[in-house]
């Protein structure tokens, strides 16, 4: 009973166990073990982790909210950062993050004041952002700033600077979510907006701020992604959507809102990255890889998300 409660409270255990199993399977398939396997998976997990964190706070705001625009924001931000970084690296980061935040702000405002469900809102703004990418991309620089690339790929005992940056962002977000008034308010509105209103919380402000923050994080993910994979391209965000949502949900974040777990997202993203590494290492056909990924995902979700009563 005790153990069950403990697992329920620390549900990041699920993806952690998944990670360990997958790692063991990689060792078995490749016949060798090294810490580099962990480090390279951690590096690859960065982008799903960032998008997953943004997704987590949006989902936590409740009412079935989900952000479908994050992957497009990532792509746009990658282009913007690559372009502006030609002048100045810092300015490039800021511009990309600001663009992401702006999209998030618009999402929040439409959601709250036009009363359009978050899913439809972000679907629509996602379309628009994607169009901007398609039209503007040919006129923009898609190659990253080499100095910045060098910086984030620098290695500290195996861990890249990028991984460290992502962990730092996660830690900051954890502080915001669990140690500040804003974080508590966010979890409150995610459980019951009516009760939150009567507890004196401004629901519109909290929701809009949450969407804005999620947009900013997606923008920052774009900065890192554009630099790390060697440049921006039009579909770069698409492949991170599902791993990001999965990372958010397998680690204890409630799909209905009100409960989040930053730790869960970290291990969730790591597990998704280990899974694709394993499937590659096992030399399976791409179709089989997708199939296994999907099946495992649904199974994990059934185990961790579903309500039993």
């Amino acid at each position: 009973m005790k153990a069950k409660q403990w697992v329920e409270k620390h549900s990041f255990i699920w993806p952690l166990v998944g990670t360990i199993i997958l790692w063991a399977m990689i060792v078995a398939v490749s016949g060798r073990f090294s810490m580099n396997q962990l480090f390279s998976c951690a590096t690859l997990a960065s982008f799903s982790l960032m998008l997953g964190l943004g997704q987590t706070i949006v989902i936590t705001s409740g009412e079935g909210a989900i952000d479908l625009s994050g992957t497009y924001v990532l792509t746009l931000a990658a282009y913007i950062s690559c372009t502006v970084m030609k002048q100045n690296a810092i300015l490039g980061i800021l511009a990309a993050v600001a663009a992401g935040a702006l999209v998030g702000l618009i999402n929040g405002i439409i959601n709250i004041y036009l009363k359009v469900p978050a899913m439809i809102t972000t679907l629509a703004t996602g379309y628009i952002v994607f169009t901007i990418v398609l039209i503007a991309a040919p006129h923009m620089n898609s190659l990253p700033n080499s100095g910045f690339v060098k910086l984030i790929t620098t290695n500290f005992g195996g861990l890249t600077v990028m991984t460290l940056i992502c962990l730092a962002v996660s830690a900051l977000l954890a502080v915001l979510l669990y140690k500040t008034k804003f974080g508590k308010n966010l979890h409150a509105i995610g459980q019951k907006r009516e009760a939150a209103k009567y507890a004196g919380i401004s629901v519109p402000f909290t929701v809009i701020a949450t969407f804005t923050l999620a947009g900013a994080i997606a923008g920052f993910a774009g900065v890192l992604c554009g630099a790390y994979i060697g440049g921006a391209f039009q579909d770069m965000g698409t492949s991170y959507f599902l791993p990001a949502v999965a990372a958010a949900l397998v680690g204890g974040t409630l799909a209905s809102g009100g409960r989040s777990s930053v730790m869960g997202v970290i291990f969730g993203a790591l597990m998704m990255s280990f899974m694709s590494t394993f499937l590659n290492a096992a030399n399976l056909a791409p179709g089989l890889q997708r199939l296994i990924q999907g099946a495992v995902l649904v199974l994990i979700l059934v185990a961790s998300v579903s309500k039993k009563d």
Partner: peptide, 24 residues
């Protein structure tokens, strides 16, 4: 039966359909 939000399950199923199609 398991009262999982449909959005989550159908997202996961997306990979399964694609996987089967790619295998075939």
């Amino acid at each position: 039966i398991r009262r999982i939000p449909a959005i989550v399950v159908t997202l996961g199923a997306q990979y399964i359909w694609l996987g089967v199609a790619l295998v075939l």
